[in-house]
C-alpha cells in the first residue's frame, strides 16, 4: 500500500485525499478483517516543505502500526507534475538522511517481526539454488523486494516446488530454515 506520507500537512500537499487518522483506521480495519496479513508500504522523504516534525511523525506512525516492510524513496522533482510548481527546497543529502532515518526505525521493527517467525512452519515456494543453498519465499514475501528464506538441505529441490520449512534463524531482511 503506497502511503507516501503520514503527516497531514504532507498528505494534503501531495493531494493524497486521505488523512493520517483515516490511514490508521484503514490499517486497523484491514488487520481486523484478515488477521496476520502482510502489509508493505512505500514512503517519500523530502517532499517540498517537509519539516523535521513531519519526519518524526512518520517514525512515530511506523512504531505504532508496525508494517511488515517499508521502502523509502527520496523525492524526485518531476516536470509536468503539480508539485513542480513548488520549490524543491530540501537538498539531496538531507533527503537521503531523512530516508535513512526512517529506514532505521523500520529495520528494528522488521527484525523483531522476523524473530517472531522463528520456530514456526511456513509453506514456501523454491526460487533457485545459489552457493549450495536454496532460496525460497513464503506467502508473505514477493519477488526481489521481500524476505528470502534460505534452506540448507541435501535433498534436491526444483524451482517452483512448494515445501514446508521451519524457521530457525531471523535476520533484518532474511530468514533461514530447515525442511520439515
Amino acid at each position: 500500500m503506497p502511503l507516501q506520507h503520514i503527516a497531514d500537512p504532507m498528505l494534503k500537499a501531495m493531494k493524497r485525499q486521505i488523512t493520517r487518522a483515516e490511514i490508521l483506521d484503514l490499517v486497523k480495519a484491514i488487520r481486523a478483517e484478515v488477521p496476520g496479513i502482510c502489509l508493505r508500504t512505500t514512503l517519500i522523504a523530502g517532499f517540498p516543505g517537509e519539516t523535521l516534525e513531519d519526519v518524526e511523525d512518520v517514525k512515530r506512525f511506523l512504531e505504532e502500526v508496525r508494517f511488515d516492510r517499508v521502502g523509502v524513496f527520496t523525492y524526485s522533482h518531476e516536470e509536468g507534475t503539480s508539485a513542480y510548481a513548488l520549490e524543491d527546497n530540501i537538498p539531496a543529502e538531507e533527503k537521503e538522511r531523512r530516508a535513512q532515518d526512517i529506514m532505521e526505525t523500520q529495520q528494528e521493527i522488521s527484525l523483531e517481526k522476523n524473530q517472531e517467525k522463528v520456530g514456526k512452519v511456513f509453506r514456501v515456494i523454491v526460487d533457485k539454488k545459489e552457493s549450495g543453498r536454496y532460496l525460497a519465499r513464503t506467502e508473505f514475501d514477493s519477488v526481489e523486494v521481500d524476505n528470502e528464506v534460505i534452506i540448507n538441505t541435501d535433498r534436491k529441490l526444483k524451482p517452483g516446488e512448494f515445501v514446508n520449512v521451519k524457521i530457525t534463524k531471523a535476520f533484518d531482511y532474511d530468514l533461514e530454515g530447515e525442511l520439515v
Binding site: V34, I37, C38, L39, R40, T42, G71, E139, F140, S142
Partner: peptide
C-alpha cells in the same frame, strides 16, 4: 479502498494475504 477484496482474500486459499506497493 474496496474492503470487499479482503473477504475474497480470506475465503480463497490461493490468494496471498499480502498487500504491497513496490515502487522500488
Amino acid at each position: 479502498f474496496p474492503m470487499e477484496i479482503l473477504e475474497v482474500m480470506k475465503q480463497r486459499d490461493n490468494i496471498c494475504n499480502y498487500w504491497t506497493c513496490l515502487c522500488s
